[in-house]
Each structure stands twice: as structure tokens, then as C-alpha cells.
Amino acid sequence: MPSGQQAQGGKMFGILRAQQEERLAGVNKEFLEDQKYKDEENLAENLESFKKKYMEFDLNDQGDIDLMSLKQMLEKLGVPKTHLEVKKMIAEATGGSSETISYRNFVIMMLGKCSTVLRLIMMFEGKSDSQKLISYLYNSILNIDLPSTEVLREEWERELMIKITKVKWEKYLIYIHKCSINVRHNLIQFKIVHRLYYSKTRLNKFYPNISATCDKCQAQKATITHSLVSCIKLYRFWNYIFEILTKLFKTRMEPNTEMIIFGVMEDGNKLNASQNLFLNYGLIIAKKLILKFWKGTSIPTLKMWIASMLDTAHLEEMRFLLMDKSDQFITSWSPFVVFLESYGATQL
């Protein structure tokens, strides 16, 4: 390229850069005059820092950070993310209102107390001094706003088309830590209740080219509830399990979507402590198996569930022996073992 054209291109870039900086300075002025931020410490200094940081991004024609711009910057900072993760970060920064991050979105995020992933990355960048890093971490922890689970409760109400009282919701949250002594089981229940598993309906919102239809039944939308419980392809699996529970507990146990998802029976149920313990394991292991086949057309079998339950029984036996409470293990698990010996797994 001739030197004259290079100079002209460089001059044009400089003009556009200056115009962009002027626009961002105008936004900063709005924040400085906003009474909402009057008590913000070092506001002018921080806004100037945000402006410089924002201008490091390869902004689109509208002066916003788009998906590719953010992805490239994260790679440059040494924290590469997938397209899905970047989309989620943009949604966090904009409240889901836009597919790009405007400078106003960026400033609100940086001034906010909610520690989004992008905010933490931006704040950590350049903090090589360990003393400053520890100080920042400590202050971030102090300022973290724990997310309310009310939004989750409302999402479950809409999906299940039921009313979940606050008292019942608290029980569901507490149950996460009581469903099993196995930390992996606790994590599974936590991710279910907090809707962290990506159903096809959720993926469809991010990627419209991905069908929201269930891979297994090819008929219904694959919500979390459908994929865990109500898919017709899972009917026999859940039905067999509840038939076994009915025989073990000598009381009618009907598959109940709410109970399967959250693991908690209605108050006044007739099960004793040992039966409730067995039920907890039965439900969480069944859900673990379904999640193992979360993608694709395969479904878990009853034999898989029985094998997993027997593996758990062996671990439980050792745990109760160590606590010198073998009688409790026998009370909880012997009905299941006797049942299998009487009927045989092949006849179930």
C-alpha cells in the first residue's frame, strides 16, 4: 500500500478512535452526575479505567462488544471460553436484554456488586502483585450478592405448572444436602434444582439451529422435567422402580414428578426413617443414570438401577459398620436384598 494511503488510513482510524473516546466520555459524565453513584469511591478514576479497558476490545460498528470480540479478548487474556460460555457472559452483563455489551452495560457491570465471570476477569487482569490480589479477592467476597433462588422457584412453577410455597421450596433446598452422604449425589441434586443441566430447550435459545425436540421420544420439547421424568421413553424405567418401592414399603408408591425432581415427599407420608433413606438413594441414583444418557436416544434400564443400588448398599454397609450401627443398615437395605433374592432381577 502506498505510504500516502497508509497515512490517510491511520488518520481516519485516529479520528474514529477520538470520536469513540468522546462518546464513552459522555457516558462516563452521565454516571458521574447520577445520584445513584454519588457515594461510589474513586468513581471518576474508575470510570476512566473502564473507558480505557473497553477501548481495548475490537468493537463492532455500533461500538459494542460482540461475541467474537469478547471471545478474542478472553483468549488474549489467557482465559479462552467456548461460544456457549461467552454467550452466557454477555447475558450476565446485559441481563439477557442484548446479544452485545454496550459501554453502559459494561460500566453498570463493573460498578455492580454481583461478581459476574466477566467482571472478575476484568478486575483480576493486571493484578500481578499478590498483596493486591489477595486484597481484591477479600473485598470481592465481602461484596458478593448471593443470588436469590426465587427466580429458580418461579421457573420451576412455570415448567411444572404448580404452585411451590416458600416453605416447600426451603425443604427442597435443604434436601440437596440430605439426599445422600455421597458428595457427587449432592452435586447432582444441586445442579438439578438450580437448573444447571442444559436441556435441549435451553440450548435452542442459544442456538436456534439446535432442535428443542427430545432425542428419545422425538415428540415433545426436551425441558428438564421432560428429560428427567415425563418422557414416554422413561415411563417403564420409572414405573418399574416405583413398583419395587411399593413392594418394599408395603404402601402404594406412585411416580410423582415433583417428588422425583426434588426428592421430598409430602408431609404426613407413611414412610419411616429407614424407608426414606432408601427412597433418597433410589431417586438420586435413578436420576444419575438418566443424566448419564442425557444426550442421544439411549435410556437407562432397571438392571442398571439395581446394580447401582447394590453398589451403594456395599458402601453403606461399610459406613454403618464403621459407626457400629449394622442394625440400621439391615433395617434400611435388607428388604431390598431379600426382594431381589425372592424375585430375581431377571423377572423384574
Rank of each mutant, 00 (worst) to 15 (best):
T346W: 09
Q347V: 03
V338F: 13
W169V: 01
K81S: 02
I176E: 05
I232M: 08
L289W: 01
L277I: 01
K233M: 12
L118M: 10
Q328A: 02
I90Q: 01
K325E: 15
K88H: 13
Y198N: 13
Q189T: 05
R153G: 04
E22T: 12
G14A: 14
Q6G: 09
W156R: 02
F13I: 15
R236D: 15
R17S: 14
I241V: 13
E316F: 08
R236M: 14
N239I: 04
V229I: 08
K200T: 03
I164M: 04
N182E: 05
L84N: 06
D64S: 14
M110E: 02
I299E: 07
Q72W: 06
A18G: 11
K303S: 14
A286R: 00
R17M: 11
S130R: 09
K303P: 04
F13Q: 15
P208V: 14
Y172H: 12
V338L: 12
G14K: 15
N276W: 10
E157D: 09
N60H: 01
K51H: 00
I164L: 11
P147R: 07
S49W: 11
F206A: 03
L16V: 10
K76P: 01
T201G: 02
L47D: 05
T116E: 04
R252G: 01
I210K: 07
L322M: 12
K168A: 06
E159Q: 14
N272I: 04
N269H: 14
H194T: 12
L248F: 08
N256K: 07
S274N: 01
K52L: 02
Y197Q: 08
N182L: 07
L133K: 10
Y138E: 12
G112S: 07
K288S: 11
I192M: 00
F339M: 04
L196F: 11
G10K: 15
Y175P: 10
M318Y: 04
R195Q: 13
F206H: 00
N46Y: 08
W238S: 14
K205A: 03
I306Q: 08
S332R: 10
L74M: 06
L173G: 03
R104T: 05
T149M: 09
F50K: 06
L277K: 10
K250M: 11
H185W: 08
E92C: 00
I299M: 05
T225C: 03
E159N: 09
N28D: 11
M161Y: 11
F249M: 05
V107T: 08
S135N: 14
R153W: 01
L283Y: 03
L310T: 06
L348H: 13
S97P: 05
C179H: 12
K178M: 13
H314W: 03
D66C: 11
T94N: 12
V337L: 05
F206Y: 07
N276M: 14
R236P: 10
T301K: 13
D66N: 15
T246W: 08
F190Y: 12
K270L: 13
K178A: 07
D267K: 14
I330M: 00
T213H: 01
F13N: 15
K168L: 08
F13A: 15
